[in-house]
Design a binder for these strands. Structure first.
Length: 578
RNA sequence: UGGGGCGUAGGCUAACGGUAGGCCCCGGGUUUUUGGUACCCGUAAUUGCAGGUUCGAAUCCUGCCGCCCCAGCCA
């Protein structure tokens, strides 16, 4: 424990950001349990998704928590699929979930489990519950069941079938299992208390009839366990110590405890924490599914989605996501974390790990009049300026180059350091050039800039010490490779997309310019053949990732992960405002 | 309305009866061949409100107020 505290105060922020677990109420419980020997010194957690959708950043928090705690305390964390509802689940989802957890950097080793692995055991325990007189087969319709349950104000009333004999219950349950009845004809219920103020305790359903093919057990079963029955048993069977879940299950804990007590089996502790909400996006599987189904995004792994696979495709790193999850902390109060924190974490990681290269998104031709035609030369540029030992590459240079159209202004505003008539700027790693003339087409649009260079400034240095504030990125016309660049921005343009008036849908809050595709971008030749998922910083623009699906050697496709901070934009905004 | 939770700067979070700390955002500055990074400085919380206990309260007690969850044969 003291070692942890020392760590927290240490100066090694890199190490801290990777694995430091900050103080939170769950860690406190675990440390206390470790001290008292409550679980014989074991720490066993689990991450139990239902395979009915893709994992999102909220799940990442849960994964980092459960796997992270197991790792930190020398325990284990199981990956367990809670596949108790065959009509919603699919192997496509289990595959994607496994890939995402593993990509995030966590290893379940040989502890991959499925609730469906325990169907037989769960059924046996259900029989035991019936034998003990603690469960009965109800034959009310779904509507009647709801009516009998009562509401917050009124207690429920007992079903007329509640007092069936153990023999009759056993017989009916067995016939439910053998497929004799239609869906909904009967329901196995726990006999608890129809007047409980906790609705979950009003004779909750244990097994329902569902004639559906299960993605793993096929048609072996036509009755399936309910979450409350299944989950505690799964935890118990796997000898979980701390069963971490989100706040909405708080009301289920009495039931979780009740079942395990009645069965007199190993009994883990359920602990609830607040789920993660992120500004400018939605986190519910249902809403994300809507976006996918309505074609508002290109699938679950669209780079604008808050899914793990979407973030991955966008270029976010697993390290950054883990760091983010660590920084948001774990507590019990509802929260909405600022997207800016995620973005900061991504930039922080990418800044350290991404090689710098040059690419021009919106090219404007520049001809250097005093550079001899037909000649060329190369400049050596480091991938990590200031850390030349990490490698360099040659950048060709000649008479015709391209710069960013946005880096030129016919009339330079105040504090403008970039290109404008008569102004001298530096071409990064290359030289100093001065703009002399503007060439236009018939429509008056600027199509070309005529400049001169100072041959003494080779490498970009100022030969006489004259001050040149502006440094531009550029590419050599003859050797540039073309690329498609997809500029992604936040999917929604309001902090809380779900806050809409009646009759309106959250999709109305979608940011219409959340994806802009540029097809005629020009990149330096070293980028030719860049491997899928490799990441770069395009100097002065942002971080980009080679699309893992659409990019080929013939056609490069980059996704913008995140822009660089743009303090000029702030300055200009301020100037404009005055 | 019954029950279960939760209220600490704009957003997250720490503090475990000893006098509110950190990160993000925001503002200013230094360095800079990225208007990036790094570094420095700064703004901002009478801890939801009102009482009480105590030498001392964000922490304990009481009462209010506000927000979230629960009436699936979903998880």
């Amino acid at each position: 424990m003291s070692e942890k505290n020392d760590n927290k105060q240490g100066k090694d922020f890199n190490a801290a950001s990777e694995s430091e677990s900050r103080s939170n109420f769950i860690v406190e419980i675990i440390e206390r349990d470790l001290e008292t020997g409550k679980w014989d010194g074991r720490v066993a957690t689990r991450f139990p998704p239902e395979p009915n959708g893709y994992l999102h950043i909220g799940h990442a928090k849960a994964i980092c928590l459960s796997f992270g705690i197991a790792k930190e305390y020398g325990g284990t964390c199981n990956l367990r699929f809670d596949d108790t509802n065959p009509s919603k689940e699919d192997t496509e989802y289990v595959e994607s979930i496994k890939e995402d957890v593993s990509w995030l950097g966590f290893d379940w080793e040989d502890r991959l489990f499925f609730a469906s692995d325990y169907f037989k055991t769960m059924h046996e325990y259900a029989v035991k519950l019936i034998e003990d007189g603690k469960a009965y087969v109800d034959s009310l319709s779904a509507e009647e069941t709801a009516e009998y349950r009562g509401d917050y104000k009124r207690p429920g009333k007992n079903s007329p079938y509640r007092d069936r004999s153990v023999e009759e219950n056993l017989d009916l349950f067995s016939r439910m299992k053998s497929g004799e009845f239609e869906d909904g004809a009967h329901l196995l219920r726990a006999k608890i208390d129809m007047a409980s103020p906790n609705m979950n305790m009003r004779d909750p359903a244990v097994y329902r009839i569902r004639h559906a093919s299960h993605h793993r057990t096929g048609d072996e079963w036509c009755i399936y366990p309910m979450y409350d029955w299944a989950h505690g048993l799964e935890d118990s069977i796997e000898r979980i110590t701390h069963s971490l879940c989100t706040l909405e299950f708080e009301n289920h804990r009495p039931l979780y405890d009740w079942f395990l007590e009645q069965l007199d089996v190993y009994h883990p502790q359920q602990i609830e924490f607040a789920r993660l909400n992120l500004s400018y996006t939605v986190m519910s599987k249902r809403k994300l599914l809507d976006l996918v189904n309505e074609g508002l995004v290109n699938g679950w792994d669209d780079p604008r989605m808050p899914t793990i696979s979407g973030f991955r495709r966008r270029g976010y790193t697993a390290t950054a996501i883990r760091t983010f999850c660590d920084r948001v902390g774990v507590a019990k109060r509802d929260n909405t974390v600022d997207l800016a924190l995620l973005e900061h974490t991504i930039r922080e990681d990418l800044n350290e790990t991404s090689p710098r290269v040059m690419a021009v998104l919106d090219p404007l031709k520049v001809v250097i009049d005093n550079y001899p035609e037909g000649e060329s030369e190369e400049f050596e540029a480091p991938y990590f300026p200031g850390q030349e030992e990490k490698g360099t590459r040659a950048i060709p240079f000649s008479r015709e180059i391209f710069v960013e159209r946005g880096d030129f202004r016919e009339e330079a505003p105040k504090k403008w350091h970039r290109l404008a008539p008569g102004k001298e700027v530096r071409l990064r790693y290359a030289c100093l050039i001065t703009c002399n003339e503007i060439i236009r087409n018939d429509d008056g649009e600027v199509t070309e800039l005529r400049c001169t260079w100072d041959p003494e400034s080779r490498g970009g240095t100022s030969p006489d010490g004259r001050k040149v504030r502006g440094t531009l990125h550029w590419v050599n016309a003859a050797t540039a490779v073309t690329a498609e660049v997809r500029l992604y921005d936040r999917l929604f343009n309001v902090i809380n997309p779900l806050a809409v008036e009646d009759g309106h849908s959250f999709v109305e809050n979608i940011n219409p310019s959340s994806c802009e595709v540029l097809t005629r971008c020009l990149a330096e030749p070293s980028l030719a053949g860049a491997k899928p998922e490799s990441r770069f910083q395009f100097e002065r623009i942002g971080y980009f990732c080679v699309d893992r699906y659409d990019s080929t050697d013939d056609k490069l496709v980059f996704n913008r992960t995140i822009t660089l901070r743009d303090s000029w934009a702030k300055i200009e905004k301020k100037l404009g405002g005055k």
